[in-house]
């Protein structure tokens, strides 16, 4: 039985999960430099280990309503995506980081065609963890530009 390890995090009311292989670091209260005239779903840039990374407004990208207390708990998850020469890093907003979980491939169910508010192409599947639906993210599709 093949299983992968995922990091789960909250965005609005939803629970998402990404393969831990794609996660570099979780940052708190990072100074974000806004870039005037940048695409709407980019909050700006940050200095991450001496490199400049774009910050993706995940809420906007996934069409999620932003909570009132937006300023309170703004976390950034730094993702590393792609391989070799095409490798790049991106930071994305999250409301809270939850667990690290094991999900067997058999436990992953296909994404329902309708009934979700955001583009289903960003997801690889859905799984059930502790009686909660967890959306597995396709990092390459969700965080590419």
């Amino acid at each position: 039985m093949k299983a992968n390890t995922y990091l789960t995090f909250k965005l609005g009311q939803e629970l998402f999960a990404v393969n831990v292989d794609n996660v570099l670091e979780v940052l708190e209260r990072q100074l974000i430099t806004p870039v005037p005239d940048a695409p709407k779903n980019l909050l700006g840039i940050i200095n991450f280990r001496g490199e400049i990374l774009p910050v993706l407004n995940t809420h906007l990208k996934f069409n999620l309503t932003v909570e009132d207390n937006e300023e309170l708990e703004r976390l950034l998850i730094v993702f590393e995506i792609g391989q070799d020469e095409n490798k790049y890093s991106v930071a994305a907003t999250a409301d809270a980081v939850k667990d690290v979980i094991e999900v067997a491939n058999e436990q992953i169910k296909p994404v329902p065609e309708n009934g979700i508010s955001y583009d289903s192409k960003y997801l690889t599947g859905i799984t059930n963890y502790n009686n909660q639906f967890v959306m597995l993210l396709n990092t390459i599709k969700a965080f590419s530009f």
């Binding site: 005239d37 980019l42 840039i45 400049i52 990374l53």
Partner: peptide, 23 residues
């Protein structure tokens, strides 16, 4: 470099870290 996320932002060609950590 700003990376391809900002490829449409033509009036900027890069960024530089300042001494205080800002950009």
């Amino acid at each position: 470099p700003l990376g391809k996320a900002f490829s449409e932002v033509k009036h900027l060609s890069g960024a530089s870290l300042l001494g205080d950590g800002s950009i």
